[in-house]
């Protein structure tokens, strides 16, 4: 099939960007979207032009490196699919597509379709840890975890931090990401000691990074390639509120990372 791509080209953080049009011909149905871009980049390189920068690593949908907007949707049209796992059979001959980077002030553009998602790392640093006592290893299975808690925690642990939730949210909010990271640990007995500090510190860091608020449009959960449920945000709100209103309001900073 033959496609026309309008790709956002931007040389660096502060440079001005613009869309550029590229025809891509003889695209096979079996290619992944990134392979199609590889073909385009080979051609651009051969012509002595700057190839399109996009982030990728595993190409298996598990690392969370890839991701940009394809025609107004993060990771493109297929639900529960990262762009590296998106196949060209999802498109048809003659399609004209717009490729844009994830747009959020907390995700500055580094080059073309690559954004800096360091804000996510700082949110995780603010509370995404559990305290473990040093000394002899504990007895195996000495901390029983209820099956339902393990399952719910695992569902949230599936988050690959790709940033699609932020990209899809009309408010540029990182609520789904942050709530997945909070729920992942808060649902387990191992996460219990820092439970309320975690919710507070991660939410405050999220705010500090300049992400927006939740107005329950629900776009994030639909865009999430890993199916993180919207309910995680409701849970995080509850934990943050309890932490602030009913519990001791002292925020401890980072003294729990043992």
């Amino acid at each position: 099939m033959n496609l026309t791509l309008n790709v956002w080209r931007q040389k660096g953080r502060t440079a001005a960007g613009a869309f550029e049009k590229y025809p891509v011909n003889d695209v096979s149905d079996h290619m992944s979207f990134l392979e199609m871009l590889d073909v385009l980049n080979e051609k651009l390189t051969a012509e002595g032009k700057d190839p399109v920068a996009f982030e990728h690593d595993c190409r298996e949908g598990i690392c969370g490196s890839c991701g940009f907007m394809i025609d107004g949707r993060p990771h493109g049209p297929m639900p529960r699919t990262t762009v590296c796992q998106l196949h060209m059979r999802s498109f048809k001959d003659g399609d004209e597509l717009f490729l844009e980077p994830f747009r959020a002030s907390a995700f500055p553009i580094l080059k073309d379709l690559v954004v800096d998602r360091g804000a996510f790392d700082r949110i995780v640093q603010a509370g995404g840890y559990v305290s473990v006592n040093t000394g002899s290893a504990p007895e195996a299975n000495s901390t029983p975890v209820p099956k339902t808690a393990a399952d719910a925690s695992f569902d949230n642990a599936a988050c690959i931090a790709c940033g699609a939730c932020v990209a899809a949210c009309p408010n540029g909010a990182a609520m789904l990401f942050t709530s997945a990271k909070v729920a992942h640990l808060n649902l387990l007995p191992q996460g219990e000691p820092e439970r309320y500090e975690r919710a507070t510190n991660m939410v405050l860091q999220m705010d500090k990074e300049g992400f927006g608020h939740c107005s329950w449009h629900g776009e994030c959960a639909e865009a999430c390639p890993k199916g993180i449920p919207l309910a995680s945000i409701a849970r995080m709100n509850g934990e943050f509120t309890v932490a602030n209103l009913l519990r001791s309001p002292h925020v401890s900073g980072g003294d729990g990372g043992g």
Partner: peptide, 9 residues
């Protein structure tokens, strides 16, 4: 965004 499509709102 230049193009943006909603899924849930």
């Amino acid at each position: 965004y230049k193009v943006s499509k909603s899924r849930a709102s």
